[in-house]
Amino acid sequence: MTALAFGFDTVASLTPTPLQRALAAAPDKPPPGQAKPEREFFAFRVGDLSLGVPSENVREVARLGPVTPLPRTPSFLLGVFAHRGEVLPVVDLLRFLGKGESRVSDRSRLFVAVSGNYGAAVLTDTVIGLRRFPLSEVLAPPVGAESGVEHLLGVVHVAAGGTITLVDLPKVLVSARQKLVKR
C-alpha cells in the first residue's frame, strides 16, 4: 500500500495542472502589437493648471527658498535660487506659456529640472506625483488655440474629468535660454 500510494503521488506531481501549463506557456513580455507603450510623467499643479513633464527630466523636489531677482530678464525668469550649493534659475511656467502667473507662497514647491547641460528650478503650487500614461491616450495639443502650444507634448484625460497638460520640458529650457540670449 505504501508503495502504491507513493507511486500515485509521484504521478500526480508530474502531471501539471491547467494553471501550471498556462504559466509555462505564458510569454515573458507582451506579444508585439499588444504592448501599450507608456511614458512616465512628473505631474504637478500650478495656478489652475495640472501639468506634467517627462519624469526623466526631473531630479528632485524642494522647498522654495530665497529667490534673488536678476536685472532686466524676462518675467518668466523669477531669479536664481541656491539649492545644495548649486545656483539654479527659477522659471515660472505659467508666465512662460502665457497662461498667467504663479503666486509664490509658503506652500510653494519647486522641482529641479534637467536637460542636457541645462538645469532650472520650476515653480509649482502642489506636487501630484509620478504618473504613467499610455502614449495612445496622449491627445495632440490644440493647434493654434493657445499660446505656448508649441511647447506642449499633448493632453491626457484623467479621473474626475480632469486633464493633465504635458509639457515638453527640454524644449522649454532651450527656448527660455534663447529668449534670454536674444535680449
Binding site: 534673488t68 530678464t73 536664481v80 550649493g85 545656483v87 534659475p89 541645462y118 535660454r177 534670454l180
Partner: peptide, 17 residues
C-alpha cells in the same frame, strides 16, 4: 561664489552670485 547658470544668462554685468 558661483557663476550664473547657463539657463539664467542675464545682463553681462550680472556676473555671478
Amino acid at each position: 561664489l558661483r557663476r550664473l547658470p547657463q539657463a539664467a544668462t542675464a545682463q553681462p554685468y550680472a556676473i555671478g552670485v
